[in-house]
Structures are given as C-alpha cells and as structure tokens.
Amino acid sequence: MLLAMDVFEAIAEPSRRELLDLLAERDRPAGELVEHLHRLTQPAVSRHLRILREVGLVEVRPDGQRRIYALRADRLLEIENWISRYRKYWPRHLDALEHHLSQKETEE
C-alpha cells in the first residue's frame, strides 16, 4: 500500500521544484512544461505533475484539447510556517559570516 505524499516530500524532488518555478511565472499547458523539462519524458513529467496535483500544489483545468496547470501558492504556506520557526537562527549565522568575511578582507 502506498502512503500519501506530503508537500515536503513532493518538493524534495528537483524536477518538481523546477515545475513549480515555471508555474510561479504563469499558468502553462502541459506540453510547454514537457518542453522545458526536455531531459524528462512526457510520462515522467506527467507523473511529477500528478504528484504536485495530489498534494495540492498545482491545479489543472481543461482548455479545449490542452490541460493548463497553475500553481496553488496557498499550499506553500505549510512550508513557510515550518521554516518560520527557524528564521530566528539566520541573523546569527549571517552575522558570523559577515564577521568572517570582514576578517578575511582585512588579512588580504
């Protein structure tokens, strides 16, 4: 029995992230998405789109013979909420990096 995939598992795959990047620009027909991911076969792109649709990151609508895919950015809030818990650590690391780069620059 296959367990349902969640948003985090879905975006873990680089090709699916690439599809999301393309859809963040604008809605696109399936054929155009296949063209952009030319290293993958049409069935492979279709599988990735199905997974993204199942976790709710994309939606599809018919347009004559074509299927148009659109990003559902609201589903990315789950990721945003999870990441936000860790943002408090970023300034400290960025400050340390800035300090290290300043020291390197002074040494040179």
Rank of each mutant, 00 (worst) to 15 (best):
V60F: 10
M1Y: 09
R28P: 05
F8D: 09
Q65N: 12
L37Q: 00
E32R: 15
V60W: 10
I11R: 00
L19F: 07
P62M: 02
T41S: 05
I68C: 11
E9W: 02
K104M: 09
G56Q: 05
E54L: 03
R47L: 10
G31C: 07
R75I: 10
A12C: 03
H48M: 01
R87L: 15
R92W: 04
S15P: 00
E105H: 06
A96D: 13
A10N: 03
G31V: 07
L23F: 14
P62W: 00
H100R: 11
P14M: 01
Y86T: 03
P43Q: 03
R61W: 13
R39L: 11
V60M: 14
L71K: 03
A73N: 07
W82E: 06
R26M: 04
L2W: 05
D95M: 09
P43H: 04
R75E: 15
A10V: 00
L97G: 07
S84R: 14
E35M: 05
R92T: 02
V34C: 11
S102F: 04
E9H: 02
Q65T: 13
P91T: 00
P14D: 01
R47C: 01
E78D: 12
S46W: 08
A24Q: 13
H48F: 03
L23S: 14
Y86C: 01
A24F: 10
M1P: 12
E108R: 10
H38S: 12
F8N: 13
D27K: 08
A44C: 06
D6C: 09
H48R: 00
V7T: 13
E98G: 09
G64T: 11
L33C: 13
E18Q: 00
L23H: 14
E80K: 01
R87F: 15
V34W: 10
E59F: 12
R16C: 11
S102W: 03
G31R: 08
E80H: 04
L52V: 02
I68N: 07
G56K: 12
L37H: 02
L19I: 10
V58Q: 03
R26C: 09
V45T: 06
E35H: 04
E25I: 15
R28E: 10
L94I: 13
L76T: 10
E9V: 00
W90N: 04
